[in-house]
Amino acid sequence: MPKFAANLSMMFNEVPFLDRFQAAADCGFTAVEYLFPYDHKAEVVAERLQAAGLVQALFNMPPGDWAAGERGMAALPGREGDFASALDTAIAYAKVIGTPLLHMMAGLAPAMDPQAIMTYRENLKRATDRTGEAGIGLVIEPINGRDMPGYFLNDFNRAVDFIADTNAAHVKLQFDVYHRQILHGDVIMALRQMAPVIGHIQIASVPNRHEPMTGELDDRRIFAEIDAIGYQGYIGCEYRPAAGTRAGLGWMNKL
């Protein structure tokens, strides 16, 4: 039976961010994830997590200037210093909050640009070394161009190749079913083939990114396959509720 983590950046937006931890626990979740905790002190986030009795599943490294449209810095030539500072910040937060995984966002850059590729490889190596020293897992995630036009890492096989190049057991793939379907389809086969390098899974319906079981995929079949491949981690519910978070949670009762 899958274990679900509420994504507090998309779910429970009916209340302020720090109140979403308890709201998630009240609805039966045992774990949470979110995009970024950096608007709050790490100690405050850790207190809310502990008070609600929740496990932290994952959060992202600082992405640069999100409000200005930046979506990560790992593939951005000339931003290596900013990336290194963001990595330090993420690890410091991870140690206080207690997350087992950090997601490294690639940023907006031409996918085949040699300079962007070299920069990404170098920053991935830096992040691999630093997270390894800290005892924290690192994941990278392909993201579709419909939701994030121009995102550098937009192919699952390429992500697997980057992971293989690190030769590090703690560097894994963040397999988002929603992004996989839009980018390539073939979700079930990809889960089977990529199972050895999957470090985190996320779910949302396609095409509207609402609750599971409301779109074009057979999400029950996908959850069964996730169990079949032996995945032991949390599945992040990274979806936008169609009509309020609590009103849409009935999908979990159908499993």
Rank of each mutant, 00 (worst) to 15 (best):
V177Y: 04
P114R: 12
G137A: 10
H170C: 13
T119R: 03
N123T: 10
R130G: 04
D155N: 15
R126S: 14
N167D: 14
G150L: 05
I163L: 09
E133W: 00
A168C: 10
H103T: 13
Y178L: 01
F152G: 05
N123A: 09
F175K: 03
E122M: 14
V139N: 14
M148R: 11
V96R: 01
P142F: 06
P100I: 03
M118I: 11
Q115A: 15
I140A: 06
Q181R: 13
A111Q: 13
D161W: 11
M104E: 06
G145V: 04
I97L: 01
K172P: 14
H103F: 03
R146I: 14
M148N: 10
A94V: 04
P149R: 06
P114C: 10
L124N: 09
F152V: 03
A169Q: 15
D165V: 10
T128D: 15
P110Q: 01
D113E: 02
A168I: 05
F152P: 01
L153Y: 02
A111L: 04
I163C: 04
I117F: 02
T119S: 05
M104W: 03
G135A: 08
L153N: 07
G137H: 14
V177F: 02
A116N: 04
Y151W: 05
V177C: 11
D155R: 07
G135S: 08
V177G: 03
A168N: 12
T119G: 06
K172G: 03
A169E: 15
L102S: 07
P142K: 10
Y178T: 05
I163G: 06
K172E: 12
A94T: 04
R126V: 13
P149S: 06
K125T: 15
G150V: 06
G98C: 14
P142G: 09
I140G: 06
A169W: 09
I143Q: 03
N144T: 13
Q115E: 13
M104L: 14
I163P: 08
A164Y: 14
G98W: 03
G107L: 05
L183Q: 15
A169R: 15
A159M: 01
G98H: 12
H179W: 02
N154K: 13
P110A: 04
V96W: 00
A94F: 05
L101D: 00
E141G: 08
D155A: 12
I163Q: 07
R180M: 15
L101R: 13
I140L: 09
V160W: 04
D147Y: 12
L102W: 01
A169P: 13
V171W: 04
T99S: 01
A168H: 05
L183R: 12
H103A: 10
D113K: 00
Y178N: 05
A109C: 12
F152K: 02
L153A: 02
P142L: 12
R121Y: 12
Q115N: 13
P110D: 03
Y120A: 11
D155W: 08
L102D: 00
M118F: 13
L173N: 07
P110M: 01
I182A: 11
N154F: 09
I97K: 00
G137V: 03
